[in-house]
Design a protein around this nucleic acid. Structure first.
Length: 417
DNA sequence: TGACGTCAAGATCCG
DNA sequence: CGGATCTTGACGTCA
Protein backbone atom coordinates (compact mmCIF):
# COMPACT_ATOMS: atom_id res chain seq x y z
CA UNK A 1 0.00 0.00 0.00
CA UNK A 2 1.29 3.37 -1.04
CA UNK A 3 0.08 6.52 0.71
CA UNK A 4 0.78 9.94 -0.74
CA UNK A 5 -0.21 13.57 -1.11
CA UNK A 6 -1.06 16.09 -3.78
CA UNK A 7 0.93 18.74 -5.63
CA UNK A 8 2.90 20.64 -3.00
CA UNK A 9 4.84 20.29 0.21
CA UNK A 10 4.83 22.02 3.57
CA UNK A 11 8.13 23.03 5.07
CA UNK A 12 10.43 21.55 2.42
CA UNK A 13 12.95 24.04 1.03
CA UNK A 14 13.22 24.75 -2.69
CA UNK A 15 9.95 23.05 -3.61
CA UNK A 16 7.77 26.08 -4.34
CA UNK A 17 6.04 26.16 -7.72
CA UNK A 18 5.98 29.45 -9.63
CA UNK A 19 3.52 30.79 -12.14
CA UNK A 20 2.57 33.99 -13.91
CA UNK A 21 -0.43 35.75 -15.36
CA UNK A 22 -1.21 35.58 -19.04
CA UNK A 23 0.02 39.05 -19.95
CA UNK A 24 3.48 38.30 -18.53
CA UNK A 25 3.79 34.93 -20.27
CA UNK A 26 6.67 35.73 -22.60
CA UNK A 27 8.81 32.93 -23.96
CA UNK A 28 11.81 33.88 -21.84
CA UNK A 29 9.74 34.16 -18.68
CA UNK A 30 7.98 30.87 -19.32
CA UNK A 31 11.28 29.09 -19.88
CA UNK A 32 12.63 30.41 -16.61
CA UNK A 33 9.47 29.36 -14.77
CA UNK A 34 9.53 25.85 -16.26
CA UNK A 35 13.18 25.41 -15.32
CA UNK A 36 12.40 26.58 -11.79
CA UNK A 37 9.35 24.31 -11.46
CA UNK A 38 11.20 21.25 -12.71
CA UNK A 39 13.90 21.89 -10.17
CA UNK A 40 11.23 22.26 -7.49
CA UNK A 41 9.65 18.98 -8.61
CA UNK A 42 13.00 17.25 -8.38
CA UNK A 43 13.42 18.48 -4.81
CA UNK A 44 9.94 17.19 -3.98
CA UNK A 45 10.76 13.78 -5.45
CA UNK A 46 13.96 13.68 -3.41
CA UNK A 47 12.08 14.62 -0.27
CA UNK A 48 9.55 11.87 -1.00
CA UNK A 49 12.34 9.33 -1.42
CA UNK A 50 13.98 10.35 1.84
CA UNK A 51 10.66 10.06 3.64
CA UNK A 52 9.60 6.82 1.97
CA UNK A 53 6.57 8.45 0.36
CA UNK A 54 5.81 6.45 -2.77
CA UNK A 55 2.69 8.16 -4.08
CA UNK A 56 2.56 11.74 -5.30
CA UNK A 57 0.38 13.91 -7.50
CA UNK A 58 2.31 16.29 -9.73
CA UNK A 59 0.81 19.77 -9.90
CA UNK A 60 -0.92 20.75 -13.15
CA UNK A 61 0.90 24.07 -12.81
CA UNK A 62 4.26 22.40 -13.51
CA UNK A 63 4.24 23.98 -16.97
CA UNK A 64 2.50 27.37 -16.77
CA UNK A 65 -0.17 27.58 -19.50
CA UNK A 66 0.90 24.08 -20.44
CA UNK A 67 -2.18 23.46 -22.57
CA UNK A 68 -2.69 27.01 -23.83
CA UNK A 69 -1.53 28.61 -27.08
CA UNK A 70 -0.12 31.32 -24.80
CA UNK A 71 2.78 28.95 -24.17
CA UNK A 72 4.71 28.26 -27.37
CA UNK A 73 7.79 26.87 -25.65
CA UNK A 74 8.58 23.30 -26.88
CA UNK A 75 9.14 22.36 -23.24
CA UNK A 76 8.94 18.57 -23.82
CA UNK A 77 12.00 18.96 -26.02
CA UNK A 78 13.84 21.84 -24.38
CA UNK A 79 13.68 20.20 -20.93
CA UNK A 80 13.86 16.57 -22.04
CA UNK A 81 16.98 15.91 -19.97
CA UNK A 82 15.41 17.25 -16.81
CA UNK A 83 12.29 15.17 -17.33
CA UNK A 84 14.37 12.06 -17.99
CA UNK A 85 16.50 12.59 -14.88
CA UNK A 86 13.49 13.19 -12.64
CA UNK A 87 11.62 10.29 -14.21
CA UNK A 88 14.51 7.96 -13.48
CA UNK A 89 14.47 8.96 -9.82
CA UNK A 90 10.75 8.28 -9.70
CA UNK A 91 11.10 4.86 -11.31
CA UNK A 92 14.16 3.84 -9.31
CA UNK A 93 12.34 4.70 -6.08
CA UNK A 94 9.28 2.68 -7.06
CA UNK A 95 7.26 5.84 -6.75
CA UNK A 96 3.88 6.19 -8.43
CA UNK A 97 2.98 9.66 -9.68
CA UNK A 98 -0.25 11.02 -11.09
CA UNK A 99 -1.87 14.22 -12.26
CA UNK A 100 -5.35 15.69 -11.80
CA UNK A 101 -6.61 18.35 -14.22
CA UNK A 102 -9.26 19.56 -11.80
CA UNK A 103 -12.79 20.82 -12.15
CA UNK A 104 -12.32 23.08 -15.16
CA UNK A 105 -11.28 20.38 -17.59
CA UNK A 106 -14.58 19.12 -18.96
CA UNK A 107 -14.82 16.81 -21.93
CA UNK A 108 -18.60 16.36 -21.88
CA UNK A 109 -19.52 20.01 -22.39
CA UNK A 110 -21.98 20.82 -25.20
CA UNK A 111 -19.61 23.67 -26.08
CA UNK A 112 -17.13 22.58 -28.70
CA UNK A 113 -14.50 25.13 -27.64
CA UNK A 114 -14.64 23.89 -24.06
CA UNK A 115 -14.18 20.30 -25.17
CA UNK A 116 -11.28 21.06 -27.47
CA UNK A 117 -9.50 22.97 -24.70
CA UNK A 118 -10.16 20.05 -22.36
CA UNK A 119 -8.62 17.66 -24.86
CA UNK A 120 -5.60 19.91 -25.19
CA UNK A 121 -5.32 19.87 -21.43
CA UNK A 122 -5.42 16.06 -21.30
CA UNK A 123 -2.79 15.98 -23.99
CA UNK A 124 -0.61 18.31 -21.92
CA UNK A 125 -0.92 16.14 -18.80
CA UNK A 126 -0.17 13.03 -20.85
CA UNK A 127 2.94 14.63 -22.33
CA UNK A 128 4.30 15.46 -18.88
CA UNK A 129 3.98 11.85 -17.72
CA UNK A 130 5.30 10.51 -21.03
CA UNK A 131 8.34 12.81 -20.76
CA UNK A 132 9.06 11.34 -17.35
CA UNK A 133 9.16 7.91 -18.94
CA UNK A 134 6.75 6.38 -16.46
CA UNK A 135 4.37 3.59 -17.47
CA UNK A 136 0.57 3.54 -17.75
CA UNK A 137 0.09 2.87 -14.02
CA UNK A 138 0.93 6.57 -13.53
CA UNK A 139 -2.53 8.03 -14.04
CA UNK A 140 -4.43 11.16 -14.95
CA UNK A 141 -7.57 11.60 -12.86
CA UNK A 142 -10.62 13.22 -14.43
CA UNK A 143 -14.16 14.01 -13.34
CA UNK A 144 -17.10 13.30 -15.62
CA UNK A 145 -18.12 16.95 -15.96
CA UNK A 146 -21.42 18.83 -16.05
CA UNK A 147 -25.02 17.68 -16.32
CA UNK A 148 -26.55 20.39 -18.54
CA UNK A 149 -30.11 19.49 -17.65
CA UNK A 150 -29.94 16.01 -19.17
CA UNK A 151 -27.67 13.61 -17.38
CA UNK A 152 -28.16 10.66 -19.73
CA UNK A 153 -27.17 12.82 -22.66
CA UNK A 154 -24.25 14.31 -20.73
CA UNK A 155 -22.97 10.81 -19.95
CA UNK A 156 -23.38 9.82 -23.59
CA UNK A 157 -21.28 12.84 -24.62
CA UNK A 158 -18.63 11.88 -22.08
CA UNK A 159 -18.45 8.37 -23.46
CA UNK A 160 -18.23 9.51 -27.07
CA UNK A 161 -15.56 12.08 -26.31
CA UNK A 162 -13.59 9.57 -24.28
CA UNK A 163 -13.64 6.97 -27.05
CA UNK A 164 -12.42 9.56 -29.54
CA UNK A 165 -9.32 10.35 -27.46
CA UNK A 166 -5.90 9.16 -28.62
CA UNK A 167 -4.81 5.83 -27.11
CA UNK A 168 -1.81 7.61 -25.61
CA UNK A 169 -4.21 9.58 -23.41
CA UNK A 170 -6.76 6.83 -22.78
CA UNK A 171 -4.18 4.47 -21.34
CA UNK A 172 -3.56 6.93 -18.50
CA UNK A 173 -7.08 8.21 -17.89
CA UNK A 174 -9.03 7.23 -14.80
CA UNK A 175 -12.33 8.72 -13.59
CA UNK A 176 -13.45 9.82 -10.15
CA UNK A 177 -16.79 10.41 -8.43
CA UNK A 178 -17.51 14.05 -7.53
CA UNK A 179 -19.58 15.65 -4.79
CA UNK A 180 -22.06 17.51 -6.98
CA UNK A 181 -23.23 15.57 -10.02
CA UNK A 182 -21.78 12.13 -10.57
CA UNK A 183 -21.87 9.67 -7.69
CA UNK A 184 -19.80 6.53 -7.49
CA UNK A 185 -22.57 4.31 -8.91
CA UNK A 186 -22.76 6.37 -12.09
CA UNK A 187 -19.02 6.71 -12.48
CA UNK A 188 -18.58 3.00 -11.94
CA UNK A 189 -21.20 2.34 -14.62
CA UNK A 190 -19.27 4.48 -17.08
CA UNK A 191 -15.98 2.92 -16.07
CA UNK A 192 -17.25 -0.60 -16.59
CA UNK A 193 -18.86 0.16 -19.93
CA UNK A 194 -15.76 1.84 -21.31
CA UNK A 195 -13.05 -0.03 -19.46
CA UNK A 196 -11.84 3.02 -17.51
CA UNK A 197 -10.40 2.49 -14.02
CA UNK A 198 -12.46 4.22 -11.32
CA UNK A 199 -11.06 6.18 -8.39
CA UNK A 200 -13.29 6.14 -5.32
CA UNK A 201 -13.24 9.37 -3.32
CA UNK A 202 -14.63 8.83 0.17
CA UNK A 203 -15.46 12.45 1.02
CA UNK A 204 -17.18 13.12 -2.30
CA UNK A 205 -19.10 9.93 -1.68
CA UNK A 206 -20.12 10.98 1.82
CA UNK A 207 -21.56 14.19 0.38
CA UNK A 208 -23.15 12.70 -2.72
CA UNK A 209 -24.27 9.25 -1.64
CA UNK A 210 -25.92 7.25 -4.39
CA UNK A 211 -29.23 5.53 -3.88
CA UNK A 212 -27.61 2.41 -2.58
CA UNK A 213 -26.85 0.82 0.74
CA UNK A 214 -23.39 -0.33 -0.20
CA UNK A 215 -20.66 0.50 2.28
CA UNK A 216 -17.46 2.35 1.45
CA UNK A 217 -15.54 -0.93 1.57
CA UNK A 218 -17.99 -2.52 -0.86
CA UNK A 219 -17.74 0.39 -3.30
CA UNK A 220 -13.97 0.22 -3.12
CA UNK A 221 -14.13 -3.49 -3.81
CA UNK A 222 -16.44 -2.84 -6.77
CA UNK A 223 -14.10 -0.18 -8.21
CA UNK A 224 -11.24 -2.60 -7.87
CA UNK A 225 -12.53 -4.66 -10.79
CA UNK A 226 -11.99 -1.72 -13.14
CA UNK A 227 -8.23 -1.73 -12.59
CA UNK A 228 -6.40 -3.95 -15.08
CA UNK A 229 -2.84 -5.24 -14.82
CA UNK A 230 -1.38 -2.41 -16.93
CA UNK A 231 -3.18 0.13 -14.71
CA UNK A 232 -1.29 -0.83 -11.58
CA UNK A 233 -2.98 -1.44 -8.24
CA UNK A 234 -6.26 0.27 -7.47
CA UNK A 235 -6.05 3.87 -6.34
CA UNK A 236 -8.49 5.77 -4.13
CA UNK A 237 -8.72 9.31 -2.81
CA UNK A 238 -9.09 9.82 0.91
CA UNK A 239 -10.12 13.05 2.56
CA UNK A 240 -11.66 14.11 5.86
CA UNK A 241 -14.17 16.87 6.42
CA UNK A 242 -12.98 20.10 8.04
CA UNK A 243 -15.54 20.34 10.86
CA UNK A 244 -15.46 24.14 10.80
CA UNK A 245 -16.11 24.56 7.09
CA UNK A 246 -18.76 23.80 4.50
CA UNK A 247 -19.38 20.18 3.46
CA UNK A 248 -16.60 18.98 1.20
CA UNK A 249 -13.89 21.23 2.60
CA UNK A 250 -10.71 19.27 3.25
CA UNK A 251 -9.47 18.94 6.82
CA UNK A 252 -6.31 20.73 7.95
CA UNK A 253 -4.71 17.43 8.86
CA UNK A 254 -5.74 13.78 8.68
CA UNK A 255 -7.09 12.74 12.08
CA UNK A 256 -5.11 9.60 12.77
CA UNK A 257 -7.71 7.53 14.59
CA UNK A 258 -10.33 8.17 11.91
CA UNK A 259 -7.82 7.13 9.27
CA UNK A 260 -6.84 3.98 11.13
CA UNK A 261 -10.52 3.02 11.40
CA UNK A 262 -10.98 3.53 7.67
CA UNK A 263 -7.83 1.58 6.93
CA UNK A 264 -9.08 -1.31 9.05
CA UNK A 265 -12.44 -1.35 7.25
CA UNK A 266 -10.83 -1.81 3.84
CA UNK A 267 -10.74 -5.49 3.10
CA UNK A 268 -7.81 -5.38 0.70
CA UNK A 269 -4.54 -3.69 1.49
CA UNK A 270 -3.13 -3.84 -2.04
CA UNK A 271 -4.37 -0.42 -3.06
CA UNK A 272 -2.92 3.08 -3.05
CA UNK A 273 -4.35 5.98 -1.08
CA UNK A 274 -4.00 9.58 -2.23
CA UNK A 275 -4.62 11.94 0.67
CA UNK A 276 -6.34 15.24 -0.02
CA UNK A 277 -5.56 17.42 2.95
CA UNK A 278 -4.24 20.87 3.71
CA UNK A 279 -1.07 19.81 5.48
CA UNK A 280 -0.02 17.66 2.52
CA UNK A 281 3.22 15.73 3.17
CA UNK A 282 2.83 16.08 6.94
CA UNK A 283 -0.28 13.92 6.89
CA UNK A 284 1.31 11.54 4.39
CA UNK A 285 4.17 10.85 6.81
CA UNK A 286 1.67 10.54 9.65
CA UNK A 287 -0.50 8.01 7.83
CA UNK A 288 2.45 6.00 6.54
CA UNK A 289 4.03 5.68 9.97
CA UNK A 290 0.64 4.85 11.49
CA UNK A 291 -0.07 1.93 9.17
CA UNK A 292 3.27 0.29 8.48
CA UNK A 293 3.65 -1.59 11.73
CA UNK A 294 6.22 -1.09 14.49
CA UNK A 295 9.34 0.73 13.43
CA UNK A 296 12.35 2.02 15.24
CA UNK A 297 11.28 4.75 17.61
CA UNK A 298 13.81 7.10 16.01
CA UNK A 299 11.23 7.70 13.26
CA UNK A 300 8.83 9.04 15.88
CA UNK A 301 11.53 11.00 17.62
CA UNK A 302 12.31 12.72 14.33
CA UNK A 303 8.65 13.61 13.97
CA UNK A 304 8.54 14.87 17.53
CA UNK A 305 11.55 17.06 16.84
CA UNK A 306 9.53 18.78 14.13
CA UNK A 307 6.30 19.15 16.07
CA UNK A 308 7.55 19.85 19.57
CA UNK A 309 7.64 23.67 19.66
CA UNK A 310 4.32 23.83 17.88
CA UNK A 311 2.90 21.65 20.65
CA UNK A 312 4.70 23.54 23.38
CA UNK A 313 3.23 26.90 22.43
CA UNK A 314 -0.31 25.55 22.40
CA UNK A 315 -0.43 22.98 25.17
CA UNK A 316 2.34 22.59 27.70
CA UNK A 317 0.59 19.70 29.42
CA UNK A 318 0.43 17.73 26.18
CA UNK A 319 4.09 18.55 25.54
CA UNK A 320 4.99 16.96 28.84
CA UNK A 321 2.80 13.94 28.15
CA UNK A 322 4.40 13.28 24.78
CA UNK A 323 7.89 13.53 26.23
CA UNK A 324 6.89 10.90 28.75
CA UNK A 325 5.26 8.78 26.04
CA UNK A 326 8.48 8.61 24.02
CA UNK A 327 10.70 7.84 27.01
CA UNK A 328 10.48 4.08 26.56
CA UNK A 329 12.72 3.35 23.56
CA UNK A 330 11.40 -0.21 23.22
CA UNK A 331 7.90 0.87 22.28
CA UNK A 332 6.42 2.50 19.22
CA UNK A 333 3.30 4.38 20.33
CA UNK A 334 2.62 5.98 16.97
CA UNK A 335 -1.15 6.40 17.23
CA UNK A 336 -1.04 7.90 20.73
CA UNK A 337 1.72 10.21 19.65
CA UNK A 338 -0.12 11.68 16.68
CA UNK A 339 -3.37 11.79 18.57
CA UNK A 340 -1.74 13.89 21.28
CA UNK A 341 -0.19 16.20 18.70
CA UNK A 342 -3.62 16.67 17.13
CA UNK A 343 -5.15 17.48 20.52
CA UNK A 344 -2.46 20.05 21.18
CA UNK A 345 -2.87 21.72 17.80
CA UNK A 346 -6.59 22.18 18.38
CA UNK A 347 -5.74 24.76 21.04
CA UNK A 348 -5.29 28.44 20.38
CA UNK A 349 -1.86 29.91 20.98
CA UNK A 350 -1.91 31.72 24.32
CA UNK A 351 0.54 34.43 25.31
CA UNK A 352 2.31 32.33 27.93
CA UNK A 353 2.72 29.39 25.59
CA UNK A 354 4.04 31.56 22.77
CA UNK A 355 6.63 33.11 25.07
CA UNK A 356 7.64 29.76 26.50
CA UNK A 357 8.15 28.22 23.05
CA UNK A 358 10.05 31.27 21.80
CA UNK A 359 12.37 31.06 24.80
CA UNK A 360 13.10 27.41 24.05
CA UNK A 361 13.93 28.29 20.44
CA UNK A 362 16.02 31.26 21.53
CA UNK A 363 18.06 28.80 23.53
CA UNK A 364 19.68 27.68 20.28
CA UNK A 365 21.19 31.14 19.81
CA UNK A 366 21.62 32.64 23.28
CA UNK A 367 25.18 31.39 23.69
CA UNK A 368 26.60 33.12 20.62
CA UNK A 369 24.08 35.73 19.43
CA UNK A 370 25.42 39.25 18.95
CA UNK A 371 24.27 42.12 21.18
CA UNK A 372 22.18 43.43 18.34
CA UNK A 373 20.44 40.07 17.84
CA UNK A 374 19.89 39.77 21.58
CA UNK A 375 18.27 43.18 21.59
CA UNK A 376 16.20 42.31 18.52
CA UNK A 377 14.88 39.19 20.19
CA UNK A 378 14.11 40.85 23.53
CA UNK A 379 12.46 43.81 21.86
CA UNK A 380 10.03 41.56 19.98
CA UNK A 381 9.43 39.44 23.05
CA UNK A 382 8.61 42.50 25.18
CA UNK A 383 6.33 43.94 22.52
CA UNK A 384 4.48 40.63 22.43
CA UNK A 385 4.13 40.64 26.23
CA UNK A 386 2.78 44.20 26.15
CA UNK A 387 0.32 43.39 23.39
CA UNK A 388 1.93 45.65 20.78
CA UNK A 389 3.77 42.88 18.93
CA UNK A 390 2.74 39.62 17.30
CA UNK A 391 3.78 36.00 17.68
CA UNK A 392 4.36 36.02 13.96
CA UNK A 393 6.93 38.82 14.12
CA UNK A 394 8.79 37.07 16.93
CA UNK A 395 8.81 33.74 15.09
CA UNK A 396 9.95 35.36 11.92
CA UNK A 397 12.90 36.89 13.71
CA UNK A 398 13.82 33.52 15.19
CA UNK A 399 13.48 31.92 11.75
CA UNK A 400 15.91 34.47 10.35
CA UNK A 401 18.42 33.56 13.01
CA UNK A 402 17.89 29.84 12.38
CA UNK A 403 18.68 30.33 8.70
CA UNK A 404 21.65 32.56 9.40
CA UNK A 405 23.22 30.20 11.93
CA UNK A 406 22.18 27.09 9.99
CA UNK A 407 20.42 25.46 12.90
CA UNK A 408 19.23 22.38 11.02
CA UNK A 409 17.21 21.14 13.97
CA UNK A 410 15.18 24.33 13.89
CA UNK A 411 15.08 24.66 10.12
CA UNK A 412 13.06 21.48 9.85
CA UNK A 413 10.68 22.43 12.67
CA UNK A 414 7.00 22.96 11.89
CA UNK A 415 7.03 25.72 14.52
CA UNK A 416 7.80 28.27 11.83
CA UNK A 417 5.13 27.26 9.31
C1' DT B 1 -23.40 37.98 -12.45
C1' DG B 2 -21.30 35.72 -8.64
C1' DA B 3 -20.07 31.47 -6.08
C1' DC B 4 -17.38 27.66 -6.21
C1' DG B 5 -11.75 26.03 -5.30
C1' DT B 6 -6.94 26.69 -5.59
C1' DC B 7 -2.69 28.65 -5.57
C1' DA B 8 0.67 32.17 -6.39
C1' DA B 9 1.21 36.64 -8.77
C1' DG B 10 0.30 41.19 -8.56
C1' DA B 11 -1.18 45.30 -6.20
C1' DT B 12 -1.48 48.10 -2.44
C1' DC B 13 -0.74 49.54 2.08
C1' DC B 14 2.23 50.61 5.99
C1' DG B 15 5.97 52.07 8.83
C1' DC C 1 12.29 50.34 0.51
C1' DG C 2 11.02 46.05 2.46
C1' DG C 3 7.61 43.45 4.44
C1' DA C 4 2.72 42.50 5.47
C1' DT C 5 -1.79 42.07 3.70
C1' DC C 6 -5.40 42.34 0.27
C1' DT C 7 -7.01 41.36 -4.49
C1' DT C 8 -6.78 39.20 -8.90
C1' DG C 9 -6.27 35.62 -12.29
C1' DA C 10 -7.47 31.27 -14.76
C1' DC C 11 -10.62 27.78 -15.57
C1' DG C 12 -16.38 25.95 -16.50
C1' DT C 13 -20.81 25.14 -14.45
C1' DC C 14 -24.81 26.35 -12.21
C1' DA C 15 -28.18 29.12 -9.69
Amino acid sequence: MKIGYACLTIGVPQTQQKSCIQKNATEAHLKALIAWNLSALEHIIEYNIQNQIKLFRISSDLIPFGSSPVNQVPWWDAFAEDFARIGKKIRDAGMRVSMHPGQYTVINSPREDVVSRAKEDLRYHTTVLDCLGVDASHKIVLHIGGVYGDKALAIKRFEEQYLALPTQIKRRLVIENDDKSYGIAEVLGIGKRLGIPVVFDNLHHAILTSASDRSEAEWIQACRETWGTADGVQKIHYAQQDPMKHPGAHAKTIRVQEFIDFHARIARKDLDIMLEVKDKNLSAVKCILSTTGPQNITRLEAEWARYKYLVLERAHAVYAKIRKLLKNKQEYPVISFYHMVELALENEIKLGGAINAAQHVWGYFSAFATEKERAGYHQRLEKLEQGTGTVRALKQYLWKLAVQYEQTYLLQSYYFL
